[in-house]
Design a protein around this nucleic acid. Sequence first.
DNA 1: CACAACTATATTGCGCACAACTTAATAGCG
DNA 2: CGCTATTAAGTTGTGCGCAATATAGTTGTG
Lengths: 153, 153
Amino acid sequence: MDVSGRTYPQLSLDLQLCFPLYAATRAVTKRYVTLLKGTGLTYPQYLVMLVLWESEEPLSVTSLGQRLRLDSGTLTPLLKRLETAGLVRRDRDPGDERRVLVSLTEAGQALEEQVSGVPQELGASMGITRDEALALRDQLTELVDHLDTAESS
Amino acid sequence: MDVSGRTYPQLSLDLQLCFPLYAATRAVTKRYVTLLKGTGLTYPQYLVMLVLWESEEPLSVTSLGQRLRLDSGTLTPLLKRLETAGLVRRDRDPGDERRVLVSLTEAGQALEEQVSGVPQELGASMGITRDEALALRDQLTELVDHLDTAESS
DNA sequence: CACAACTATATTGCGCACAACTTAATAGCG
DNA sequence: CGCTATTAAGTTGTGCGCAATATAGTTGTG
């Protein structure tokens, strides 16, 4: 990319981090469509299921949202679709009727085994070693933390 | 994150690369909302403008799509919004009436100066050095290339 | 207890992404 | 030239993300 003649070379798409980040996320999501075919899950739905699988007990919508950084505007319709698919239940918390507790159905629990090979398959598609992936993960996590700080200031 | 008791520890959200990637993209996008306030641009619209600013001549929808990895289903409505905003023109190519050539209006050209500080501001928000950003960019670009290969095989 | 402040979820509206499909124009081939 | 295949852009439908708002339930204070 020849950038020498530009008035604002810093605006070159290829010099910026933001675009590869955006493209990588979409490429990963696209790969998940293939890997999750047969489960009926979308990628965000898969993430919600990951959180539920690693929880010992039902989670409120807010708890799910904190873990995934998503709000009720995104989660409520998504959870309704998971409920329609028979993978989760949504019950009002008897102790606090404002809260909705999301829990796995038997079908939802059973799905965990079916997707257990997905992370490794995705790792293989990315063409990086486990250590590289973990290092990248840490860098991105740090980046998110910084952006959170910047945004709230 | 205690993972020791799980049947499928590889499914732990915190062990995977995919979630930080997804979270980082959304955090960056959110930061752009703030940085682009005043221009009226969304982040994808800003990316389209970046491509147009670095092009010497009008671009077809397909060319824009190849550069940004987006298809006409995404670009057509987005470009119509940019046209409504007075930033671009959309004209049929007289030499090939199937093609639509997207070109900058004067207002579209003038906007470049207004956003010229955005990359640096974003860089500051991310809390990483320029070299770290470039290294990360290269890793993500490589990741996208690998995923493309995996997807098409 | 009354009531204001707060919290949790749901709803609405907009703008992506993208798959699948349609329409129109062009290219290629007999 | 005529016809088929291909290409370019547009359309439709689904599912996010998220801001803004609405609604219902809870908490804290006097």
